[in-house]
Design a binder for these strands. Sequence first.
DNA 1: GTGAAAGCGCTAACAA
DNA 2: TTGTTAGCGCTTTCAC
Lengths: 366, 366
Amino acid sequence: MARSMHVRRPATLASLAAELGVSRTTVSNAYNRPDQLSPELRRRVLETARRLGYPGPDPVARSLRTRKAGAVGLLLTENLSYAFRDPAAIGFLEGLALACEDANQGLLLVPANPEKEDVASVHRAGVDGFVVYSVPDDDPHLAAVLERPVPTVVCDQPELASVDRVGIDDEAAITQVANHLIELGHRRIGVVCMRLARDRNDGFVPPDRQRAAHFHVQRSRLAGLAAAFASAGVDWAQVPVVERFDHNTSCGASAAAQILDRDPGITALICTSDILALGALNEARRRGLRVPQDLTITGFDGIHEAERAGLTTVRQPVLEKGRAAGKLLLDAHERTRPRTVTLGTELILGSTAGPPRGAEERWFGP
Amino acid sequence: MARSMHVRRPATLASLAAELGVSRTTVSNAYNRPDQLSPELRRRVLETARRLGYPGPDPVARSLRTRKAGAVGLLLTENLSYAFRDPAAIGFLEGLALACEDANQGLLLVPANPEKEDVASVHRAGVDGFVVYSVPDDDPHLAAVLERPVPTVVCDQPELASVDRVGIDDEAAITQVANHLIELGHRRIGVVCMRLARDRNDGFVPPDRQRAAHFHVQRSRLAGLAAAFASAGVDWAQVPVVERFDHNTSCGASAAAQILDRDPGITALICTSDILALGALNEARRRGLRVPQDLTITGFDGIHEAERAGLTTVRQPVLEKGRAAGKLLLDAHERTRPRTVTLGTELILGSTAGPPRGAEERWFGP
DNA sequence: GTGAAAGCGCTAACAA
DNA sequence: TTGTTAGCGCTTTCAC
């Protein structure tokens, strides 16, 4: 690391005390308990500190002694920088930051590359607790967090019996989408979903992989869809489900393409995120398919971009999730049982879902 | 803070060593220098650690000993959560996060309420260095950072002779905007700018406040405009400049309204940020003014939303700024002189700037 | 109001 | 390969 122009010579509390001819306690008090010494002495201490270039008590040493770091650690599924690219993650972070600043706590973003097993960054994090945002149930970083003797709150996934959690009812939420499409008359659908496990599988998802998904959120959404459409007489085994490891609009577009290529008869594409749906929308446009006349597309999350695009989707309170997670973590109450906060969602009827093309012919025709 | 279900009893490296009948060094080595002891012994150590619920070396104690925190601190002008609401700040953060993850460093967001003088959070931050993002030159948090014996890099502002800095040439950049408008024929302009100092002044800005602005970036932009328009024969003292403390579209709208109410003859509104310009655009629409036929509006930053709105603006490489700041800080080279990175900007010709209304009559008429 | 003593939990020389 | 010694810089009883 570069040496700054402002590096001071290493004066310490002890050397300051020696210089002043007082005890270390007195110097410490000058900083931490102004009322414990005379204003005059305090002035002298601070004055001498300035002269010696003493920067005040070392935060790390203080943390060691007080057993408080004054910061919350955040563990994400993705590379650190991804958090600033995904609108839903940004909203979550804003909420979490809100909770942290209310409690005057720092927020430490822990670098955790999902494609690496290296958990040293978790071990090195000097924090009083962790918030874990949407990671697979077999994430080694998560395991490392849980080994740390500090409180932890998980947002979204995984669901752990002994850990505080904030989330939504994914199955119920996606069921609203499914029922809406079923009512509109859709029976031939395709599904685009996010990463189901830590291994990259960009393509069709066989049923066993759906059921074994290490991301509870995605698993629930698929399960919800399967149940709803099965009730409507759809054979789920025939429904094309395509997975994408990365999460951006290009992936949404290519996944949509993959489904439409294989099964052009599809009338609706259900995406498990707005980002993917926005990509699917692009692909539909590219193919000259009108939405929703030729193809219905739905998303999930309710990000601004989706709203602007008029996407039919489910809104979930991302900011509130972040805030709730922070509050849960920073809440002073000592609790014995793990707490769960389940937030509400709302079906947003946009302009990208409509009756299937040629519905009459298919359902009421000859 | 809530007690987690995962709090272990406090086994330490020493107690583990005692239990095993080996020295603390050996246990330490088992974690930090696997090659320094036999695989067999290491296995025993780790195995016993698990049995005792020893979570591995305490990160804070380790930091104290090694004098490395493994994290970079970030100080922002605004409340923590603001960083996730401003697209330019988000871009900067993404770049900084990129640099941090490359170096395997954590990123600690330090809570620093700009309306409070409390700098304790800076003192408590266990970090190896600071990045300071766009703060006023008299910010007490900045002063506290500079007192800390760690390297520091400032992005944008303030300009400090002895501190590494990343920024752009604000005066040159805004001059491009000014010259563009001057060429189009604008002589009666208004300016909407961001906060000029730590005190809230939502309204017109007298010349002395412009010159005394504690935010170097805003000061330079105003100075650049003043110089360019003076060259074009405009009396800068007559140009209405309105300041807003908060940074959002509502503020941009109300500032635009304030100027238009006072001086309806204005033909162009120069805003020192895209967010403010987007707000001004809203206000123009609300008043039934066509842009650019009735009113020209320009921004600064080049955020996505501006692009979508077709705003005429200056694009600055926000992500690159973040990355450069991180690189500068984490760069291993020991440097003696402070370094400065000045990044390029680009005038974006959108659709919100055009010739002034009735330009002919005014300039070539009777 | 001030000081002495006792660690917080760990790592890094160096010695064995 | 393992252990001994010596702190990192600070806060906190508890006496005075």
